[in-house]
Structure formats: structure tokens, C-alpha cells
């Protein structure tokens, strides 16, 4: 251990530990410890003021028997799945469009990309105005076309789809860029070979582009889905969870449980379930990516 090279090695290792420690410490404090604490609180009755009391699985038992929880879970899934299925298709089409050499293509991409920089609060306020039945331009335009006013945010059946469309509008640019990069990474030779073999544009899209994009598509789908599962701000700002409970999501229930009902146990059990759902989804992503990467000619 006295040779100069191993001394340098040790110095280097010590530097490595020193460099990595601060980040690990902070991440421990802001992610891992809270996760453990959430697990603990979910097994207690706790109102933030009096000491937590151990109740075992009581919170989960109640949650599973609670209509409002299932309603929130359904809403969350509806929002996430609806937005993402439509969103991935639209994002793919827009990415295909922008993968063509268009004059002003960069500027157009930027236009689609901008809303993604703004916060959900900002986007929600803007669309509350756009959706307004009395003074909003969308209904003004519909009325101009002879279509009856649509109550986007106060009609039980429209409220969630409206928020979905708005969120899709905001997020499209981000995922479009990822897909665009994926498309551009497909070796031109494959496309050309297919062309020579007489495949038309549609065949090339379904037989070349889609298979080559599989793992990027999967990534986009899962990332978008996980983000959408955490929806809160849009409902809080635009509908406060209404009409009836049409836009109350899991995170909204969690917020209500914690801060209006002072039921930290219930809030934590929702958090834990949400976490498990997310872990499950990302494991599926890993699995899928492994499967796909074996089939693909090159990694996108």
C-alpha cells in the first residue's frame, strides 16, 4: 500500500467521497427520510398537534373502503391516461412534421415549446379565461359558429377533459422534442433501404419509424404518465376539485386530508400508495426498455 500510485488512488477515492457526500446528504434529507417518515405516519393517527398514535393498517383499510379515494384514484388515472395516450400520438405526429426540413422550422418548434416554460398556475389562469363561458374567446368563437356555449370548467363531463387538453397543450413541446431527437437518430440508411424495397410513406412509418422509436416512445409515455399522476395545481386553481368531485385527484385528496382535515395518517397513506404506483410504472419501463433494446438494431 506504500507505492505512489496507490497513494494517489487513495487520495482520489477520498476526494470522490468528499465530492459525493453533500449531494447524498441533502438527497437523503429531502427524499429518502421523508419517504420513510411517510411510511411511518401512514401507520399512525396523527393531527400534527398531538403525538402520533400507532394504528397499524387502519388508514389503508379506511382508504380502500372510502368512495372518495377511489373516485380520486379514478380521476387521476383518467387524467393521466387520457392526456398521455392522446398526447403521445399528437406529439409523435408533430415530431414527424418537424423532422421534415421546413423553412422556419426552428422558430415553429420554439413556439410549441414555450408554454412548457410557464408554470401550471400561469397556464391555468390563462385557460380559465380562454374557457370562460361569458367572456372567453373560445365560446365566443363557438357561438359565432352557431354552437351552444360549452361550460368547459363547470360541466361535470367537460371539466376533466378541458384540464386534460390544457395540460397536453402545455406539455406537448417537451415530449415532442424528445421524440424528434429519436426520429432524427434513426439511421437514414434504414429508411432508404425500405424506400428502395418499395415501401410507401405509411409503411415506412409503421415498419421503420415506430419500431426504431419503441424505447423512446416508452420513455415518453411513462415519464408523461408519471408527471400527470401528480396533478394538483390545475384543479386547485381552476375548479377546486369540482364540479362535484370531477377534478379531485389523489394529490388533491392528500392535500385536503393533511391540511383541512388534519389527518396526516390518511394523507401519508395516499402518498405511499402513489409512490408504489410510480415505482411499479417505472419498473415496467425498465423491463420494457430491456426487451426492446434486445430487438433493436441500434439504440436510439
Amino acid at each position: 500500500m506504500a507505492s505512489p500510485s496507490s497513494l494517489a488512488e487513495r487520495k482520489m477515492r477520498r476526494a470522490g467521497v468528499a465530492l459525493v457526500t453533500p449531494a447524498v446528504a441533502v438527497i437523503l434529507l429531502i427524499s429518502i427520510i421523508p419517504l420513510i417518515v411517510a411510511g411511518y405516519f401512514s401507520l399512525t393517527k396523527f393531527d400534527m398537534i398531538n403525538k402520533p398514535q400507532w394504528v397499524g393498517l387502519e388508514n389503508y383499510r379506511r382508504l380502500f373502503g372510502d368512495e372518495a379515494f377511489w373516485e380520486a384514484a379514478t380521476n387521476t388515472f383518467y387524467f393521466a391516461f387520457g392526456q398521455v395516450v392522446v398526447g403521445v400520438v399528437v406529439a409523435l405526429m408533430v415530431a414527424m412534421l418537424f423532422s421534415q426540413a421546413l423553412k422556419g422550422g426552428a422558430a415553429m418548434r420554439t413556439v410549441v415549446y414555450i408554454p412548457q416554460a410557464a408554470s401550471y398556475v400561469v397556464i391555468s389562469l390563462i385557460w380559465t379565461f380562454l374557457f370562460d363561458p361569458a367572456i372567453g374567446p373560445i365560446n365566443a368563437a363557438l357561438n359565432g359558429l352557431g354552437i351552444d356555449t360549452i361550460y368547459f370548467l363547470t360541466d361535470q363531463n367537460w371539466a376533466m377533459p378541458s384540464i386534460m387538453v390544457m395540460s397536453l397543450w402545455r406539455n406537448l413541446g417537451y415530449f415532442m422534442v424528445i421524440l424528434l431527437a429519436g426520429i432524427q437518430a434513426i439511421p437514414t440508411s434504414i429508411n432508404e433501404a425500405a424506400h428502395v424495397d418499395g415501401a410507401n410513406a405509411f409503411q415506412r412509418f409503421f415498419l421503420v419509424t415506430i419500431p426504431q422509436l419503441k424505447s423512446t416512445l416508452l420513455f415518453v409515455f411513462v415519464t408523461w404518465f408519471l408527471g400527470a399522476m401528480q396533478m394538483f395545481t390545475q384543479s386547485y386553481v381552476m375548479t377546486q376539485g369540482g364540479p362535484i368531485n370531477a377534478t379531485r385527484t389523489l394529490v388533491y385528496r392528500m392535500y385536503d386530508s393533511a391540511f383541512t382535515e388534519l389527518n396526516i395518517g390518511a394523507a401519508s397513506s395516499i402518498a405511499v400508495l402513489l409512490f408504489l404506483a410510480v415505482v411499479l410504472a417505472s419498473l415496467l419501463l425498465k423491463l420494457g426498455q430491456k426487451l426492446f433494446s434486445r430487438q433493436e438494431l441500434s439504440t436510439p
Binding site: M12, R13, R14, A15, G16, V17, L19, V20, V24, I27, I30, S31, I32, I33, P34, L35, V37, A38, F41, M48, L226, M229, Q230, F232, V251, M254, A258, I264, A267, S268, A271, V272, L274, F275, V278, V279, A281, S282
Partner: peptide, 30 residues
């Protein structure tokens, strides 16, 4: 740098990439 525990830290980080911030809000607040 190939320090001891690197694999563990790396694995932990990748696992944490997917933790939704909303999940930890309430416990972190407390």
C-alpha cells in the same frame, strides 16, 4: 472516481429519479 459505495449511490439515484415530489411534501413539511 472509483470510490467505494459508488454502485450503491448510483443505484439509489436512479431509483430516486422517479419519486414524485408530491409524495414527500407532507412528511418533509413535518
Amino acid at each position: 472516481i472509483n470510490f467505494r459505495g459508488r454502485g450503491l449511490v448510483m443505484g439509489g439515484l436512479i431509483a430516486l429519479l422517479v419519486v414524485p415530489p408530491e409524495v414527500i411534501m407532507v412528511p418533509l413539511f413535518i
